[in-house]
Simulated scan of single mutants.
Amino acid sequence: MKHFSYDEWLNYVKDETNEKTREEFESHLYTCDQCLELYLQAVSVHESSLPILSNESSFTDLVMADISKQEASNKKPEVQKQAVKAKKPFYQQVAFHYLLAAAATLLLTFSGVFQSLATYASAVEAPQNMKEKKPSVTEGVIDKTFAWMDSLEKKEANKK
């Protein structure tokens, strides 16, 4: 990442850079904290030479009005009319998709597919050979430990 020097940020604050460079500096500020710090230092040094707003609320209102005007002028009337006239086909509308999903659900329910799935799921859940249950390794270790402790207790009891 290319960083800019304090002098370059000072020129930016004084508005002594071309438009392309200004855009590059502004996009760089979004990603670089180090350069943001240099920019803030340059602004604080030249704070006295920056223009002062006499009425901040009217300035904000003017900016918002200009933005609204630009947005309105950027919209093409022909495109707006075409957007109103262009209607989606029935198969691309949300209601069609909901009806299709509901019909598929009813079909699967009444045909017994969900019942078959439930039977299959319960068969997979329950092990086939419940009688041949093997103890886990942990249970085996615990059983051996208790057996060893019982044998130690018996030896102690025989000594007394």
Rank of each mutant, 00 (worst) to 15 (best):
M1Q: 10
K2P: 00
Y6H: 11
D7V: 01
Y12G: 00
D15S: 14
E16Q: 15
T17G: 01
N18R: 03
E23Q: 07
L29H: 01
D33E: 14
L36Q: 08
A42N: 04
S44N: 08
V45K: 13
S48R: 10
P51M: 04
E56F: 03
E56H: 06
S57A: 10
S57Q: 15
S58G: 00
F59L: 12
D61G: 02
L62K: 15
V63S: 07
K69E: 04
K75N: 07
E78T: 13
Q80L: 14
K81H: 02
Q82C: 02
A83N: 11
K87G: 03
F90K: 10
F96M: 06
T105R: 08
L106N: 02
L108A: 12
T109E: 02
S111T: 11
Q115E: 13
Q115P: 00
Q115N: 09
S116V: 09
T119K: 12
Y120H: 05
Y120G: 01
A121P: 00
A121V: 06
S122P: 01
A123P: 00
V124K: 14
P127D: 12
Q128F: 13
M130T: 12
M130H: 08
E132S: 07
V137T: 12
E139R: 08
D143H: 09
T145K: 07
T145I: 08
F146D: 05
M149R: 09
K155F: 09
N158K: 13
N158I: 13
